[in-house]
Amino acid sequence: MKAILLILIGFSEGVIVGVALVAFLMVLDVIPRLIDLSNSENSIFLYQKLIVLGSIFGVITDFFNLTLPNIFFINKLLVIIIGFIFGTFIGLVAAALTETLKVLPLLSKRLGLKDYMDELLFIIILGKVIGSLIYWLFPTLWFAG
């Protein structure tokens, strides 16, 4: 009896979180922007499948302690490549958030900085990269958590 309840709760949880994840990706217009940049509208179905597969892979990684076999330098290379891909995705999401996208036009109009928008954008991007680097390089920043 309790097992059925658990299964039901787990399933509903999954449905809602899944919907939230996809809505999150949609709202920010990240995927449409990428599709636009690469002119690959025909592969939309492929992208959908990949997102679903990726999410399931993420769940498996989260809940089961898997490890890959040790094929020496390929492992390190894989780590670097995946790290870069992670960063790219989060960078896209961070760029699409309101805090970056709407702040700049607002600032430039309010404070009269229209000519400097390119420089300011670059400063924001640089700030984020350096902030991230500092965060990782100094474990004291996150060790307490």
């Binding site: 940049l37 490549i81 870069f84 992670f86 960063g87 989060i90 760029a95 984020k128």
Partner: peptide, 13 residues
């Protein structure tokens, strides 16, 4: 690489 990719992603966007 994650941090570098962060900047790269924003530039792409």
């Amino acid at each position: 690489p994650y941090s570098i990719g962060l900047g790269f992603g924003m530039i792409i966007f």
